[in-house]
Design a binder for these strands. Structure first.
Lengths: 193, 193, 193, 193
DNA sequence: CATGAATGAGGATTCATTCAT
DNA sequence: TATGAATGAATCCTCATTCAT
């Protein structure tokens, strides 16, 4: 229906505005009035879709996190070999982050900041299940080091957040080749032997 | 002199309060009034030591970054072998971060947020020179992968920031053994062969 | 429309409050909070109508200056003789100042104080054009002394500001007769022969 | 004594600083700290010489007003004819104001602003006695118009304040000849016949 | 006398949120 | 549903004044 459609579009616009503004200035410099203006909406309208600023940010986080993991695991197939699976997922993660730079950056800032409710954070983590399953299998098969998932995450996925950051600041803009190198570092880090 | 001493103590107290409050609530929820209260001074007093809130945060960042790198490179000796050097530095970094958790966390938040002036950020980066020198040597000697320093940093030092974060949230509190594992992941990631 | 009407009323109320408070206490003792209270609005509301305190004062000045000159020159007719014109304008000026004492006083304070932006001051001066034209004609016809307009202004219009001041302080409350005398002083001052 | 001397110098410096700062920015933008700095003195020191900021400004006013009238009436001689006396006094007033521009301006601002205590204002007015006496004599002798002293003041002395103002703003810088013209306007204004 | 450090009260301004329409 | 206007609470910061030395 047209009405529902418009409603969804407005919500989308608000979420996009939130991402853009929080990315540039941080949470504390992204006032509701600016978000509203950027989304071509009255400040009051935001409260038709979100309960509060916190809620807006939380939902934005979840929305992006969902898109992120959906994309990452879209082609995932439990039948594939561990290393191949990991490689594919890792590259899809990288692809998402570097292609949709704004969204990737936003996630990074959420993950490194007391900006998101603990509840939403937990919610976001659930999405990673396929990756954790894969790691479990990898460990069982003696392909991946038998260490905490937190360590595996810290050394494979999280570095990409850092690289996003420096890219955003134009300190280091990674090339295709750099991405390949990065994958190698990630895999060498966690693979057994 | 007693006066100078007191002055230094007050500045120290303000910096500590800033770290604590920014860690818990983020920049946007760390008002000057709270910082003042926590440091047992009047809000107006802050402005005797710092020009503005931004200046306070910048200086805090630099202070901590200095303490951090000073500690990390304290025992560094150019004569040592590359791997041994790296291991020592890495462990000192880890030690600093996990021992002085608050400061480690504060740095992580500064590094992943548009909270710090670009100028101060640049200033902070300069301190890493010894590590960059070491990597250069390592690459020349064929011990470390010939990739950008940004990649090496992303896969050795930055993961520690992530681990700090999850520790702070009590999601995963690393043991001594975990630290050792983490080092192994870091080294395996960047070493050549 | 009712909404627009209310909006205008509110702006009016703010301007009136500004005039009253600046008159009594001077710019430095007319805080936005007091102005808001006197106008029966929240401090924040002021910023819906004015960009800043400076803007509020500038606009108030221009508003009053406009009302003032509009009134002064309303009945002005270029065809009239110079002396008659001058007399009429002078009396209208006097009438405005003494009838709407608050506004007259406010202008006087603005004109004798570094309170108004230079830009707004220039804007306000433009309104005087009819008087300057009249003086030009008077000089050409040998009726008015051939001296700078600044001198003519200083000896005809500005004295009224001074008289406002002393009236406000209840030092000397001019009667109808005093006004007539004042006019005589003004005219004798600038007329030729 | 050297000590007393130094004390007087300090007070003088404070008064000069007050004049300069109030002239440029108005009372509200002349903080004690700036005044202290300009006088090369600690803020606390001001309070050894003046009870409060208000007291400082009041005393500055009286000091300047005294200097002003002292100079104006210095050569006054009751025996002289009325017109000659008036001319002399008027020119000394003009001379003071235009030579010591800063002080002249300061007086003008004090006289047109609720900046000075009523008490100090009254005190300052007393100094004008010689001029009032002269006017009285002039009226008795049928030389000066029989109107209120306030009117006479408004049309002879006060215009000079206005001319100071425009000079300060570089709108109109009076020449020697302009001053002579101004005197003529003043005298024509109040003289009888 | 003189001061630099310290501060409580208050200033302008902004912001998340609400309400009348 | 959508809004522009409105606001109380809070934010950063300044200032006149005081106090320990």
């Amino acid at each position: 229906m047209a009405k529902l459609q418009k409603s969804i579009e407005k919500k989308e616009a608000l979420i996009n505005a939130t991402i853009a503004l929080v990315n540039n200035d941080g949470f504390h410099a992204a006032p509701m009035s600016k978000i509203a203006k950027m989304a071509n909406v009255s400040p009051a309208t935001i409260y038709l879709y979100f309960e509060s600023k916190q809620d807006l940010v939380n939902q934005t986080y979840l929305e992006v996190k969902n898109a992120f993991t959906t994309y990452a695991f879209e082609a995932y197939d439990e039948q594939m070999a561990v290393e191949a699976s990991f490689k594919m997922i890792w590259f899809r993660i990288a692809e998402f982050k570097f292609r949709d730079c704004e969204r990737g950056l936003f996630l990074a800032q959420c993950d490194n900041t007391p900006m998101i409710d603990e509840e939403s954070r937990q919610e976001g983590i659930k999405n990673l299940k396929p990756l954790l399953d894969l790691w479990k299998k990898g460990k069982e098969q003696g392909i991946i080091k038998p260490v905490s998932d937190y360590l595996l995450y810290a050394y494979t996925v999280n570095p990409l957040s850092y690289l996003m950051m420096v890219k955003k600041r134009n300190a280091f803009v990674p090339t295709e080749e750099n991405i390949n190198e990065a994958y190698q570092l990630a895999w060498d880090s966690i693979k057994l032997t």
